[in-house]
Design a binder for these strands. Structure first.
Length: 412
RNA sequence: CGGGGCGUAGCGUAGCCCGGUAUCGCGCCUGCUUUGGGAGCAGGAGGUCGUCAGUUCGAAUCUGGCCGCCCCGACCA
């Protein structure tokens, strides 16, 4: 039901909530602060992982999968740098008895763990405990690892995508031989995120450095990109930390340099999360619903045939087939919606609210005139076009029309 | 953790003050008519009223406890 979206001017927070829920982007799960994401409605997260990887020029990090749980002992070893982590814990549980499978997994009161386990709020602890074994010589450096993982932070207040108790992110962890190289890596990744946000997501960002109170507890410096929401508030969209030798010292990660002297490695970590999806939503959308940049939309063009019966539907299909093929040949993703249980008017409203960049309508009049009606979502403009060279024109429509770099806004 | 709100059909709700097994809309199913901006008519299916206890002949409704979620704030590595 897209008929009652709160206006941004009336209540910005409510507008955002309505939009996410009513556009079926995500829904609340049964646990506070957790959500079910309908990734297909936005973009393929796995594909984006690959794309963000491509933005990393030169020495791309190796992908890695680290455990969700680690021991408390390890966490304590982290000492000072991890001091502020809010940690989850895990109790033992048992499988349901076969005689009573319907009641599911239950906590076994007799199965209390000797030592409670930590659900990772970030993976520095496991990474650095592992790196100790991997780093022996300057020849092992730099060591660059990235992973996609869900992490849990028991936030007191949560918002869909923008701050959830559990979220999916990409976290990179690197170890270097020198301070300079680590700083360079930190800055390079901030640039990667900036480029990714602006060129791929079309989100203008401001680059900055966090104050002492705002930066990661284990970091010497935290760099960030901030997106601007439409209510004027800043939204942290990505961070890149220069960790100095804090974790190397806490986890005793040393290497032999060329002079055979033992030195602690220099570290960085950096990440972006599903919050970027929230940034994407708030950056582009309006009072009519979701707006997606054409490059990101899972389906770029929705085609709505207008037909009184099956016969006419076939006629529209035949009429439009060459244009459809031509668009697909150009790599444009098109949905031809011949669902006869929904009326055209319903489809117009639906595709508009859900942010399809271009909508094409074809009716009897068009077939007489050799035309179609084309509507673009960002400007809400409609125009009649000849069907003969439609693919070229639509391709042009889908090209980014407005500058999105921070420079263009004069806020670089 | 403070403050506020809410738990009734898949979703959104009325009923609660003043007790008598539940209203309406959307969606869903069947049929006919419709189709260029969220179709119309007719028929139909679907509910442990968050949970536990208490009061009562009788509780969605009154009383008490518990649980959960949402919103505002503090927090947000």
């Amino acid at each position: 039901m897209a008929d009652k979206l709160t206006k941004r001017a009336d209540d910005y927070a409510q507008w955002y909530n309505d939009l996410v829920l009513k556009a079926d982007l995500a829904e609340h799960s049964d646990v506070r602060g957790c959500m079910v994401i309908e990734a297909a409605r936005l973009c393929d997260l796995g594909e984006d992982a690959i794309r963000i990887g491509r933005y990393v020029q030169g020495h791309r990090p190796r992908e890695c999968i680290l455990p969700t749980l680690h021991s408390q002992k390890l966490s304590r070893q982290g000492g000072q740098p991890c001091g502020r982590l809010r940690e989850g814990m895990c109790r033992g549980h048992t499988l349901p008895p076969k005689s009573d499978p319907v009641h599911g997994v239950v906590v076994d009161p007799t199965a209390k763990l000797e030592e409670e386990l930590i659900i990772r709020p970030t993976s520095e602890t496991i990474i650095w405990n592992t790196y100790r074994g991997w780093v022996k010589s300057y020849r092992d450096l730099p060591l660059l690892i990235n992973q996609w993982a869900n992490v849990v932070r028991w936030e007191m207040r949560t918002r869909l995508f923008l701050r959830t108790a559990e979220f999916l992110w990409q976290e990179g962890h690197t170890a270097h031989a020198t301070r300079e190289e680590a700083v360079e890596e930190t800055e390079r990744m901030l640039q990667v995120y900036t480029t990714f946000a602006e060129e791929y997501l079309a989100i203008p960002v401001i680059r900055g450095v966090k104050t002492a109170s705002e930066r990661f507890a284990g970091a010497e410096d935290t760099y960030c990109i901030e997106a601007m929401m439409q209510d004027g508030k800043a939204l942290q969209a990505g961070t890149s930390h220069f960790l100095g030798q804090n974790f190397a010292k806490a986890f005793d990660v040393v290497f032999a340099n060329k002079e055979n002297q033992q030195e602690h490695v220099w570290a960085t970590s950096w990440g972006v999360s599903t919050r970027l999806v929230g940034a994407l939503i708030v950056t582009h959308s309006d009072d009519n619903g979701l707006v997606l940049p054409p490059k990101l939309a899972p389906t770029q063009v929705a085609v709505v045939p207008i037909a009184k019966n099956a016969e006419q539907m076939e006629a529209v299909k035949d009429y439009f087939a060459p244009a459809l093929a031509a668009m697909r040949a150009k790599g444009i993703t098109v949905k031809f919606d011949d669902d006869d249980t929904k009326k055209p008017g319903w489809k117009f409203a639906e595709y508009e609210f859900k942010g399809y960049p271009v909508r094409i309508a074809i009716g009897p009049q068009d077939m007489e005139n050799g035309t179609v009606e084309v509507a673009r979502r960002d400007t809400m403009e409609k125009q009649v076009m000849q069907v003969i060279d439609l693919a070229e024109k639509v391709e042009h429509l889908l090209k980014p029309s407005k500058a999105t770099s921070s420079e263009s806004l004069g806020i670089a």
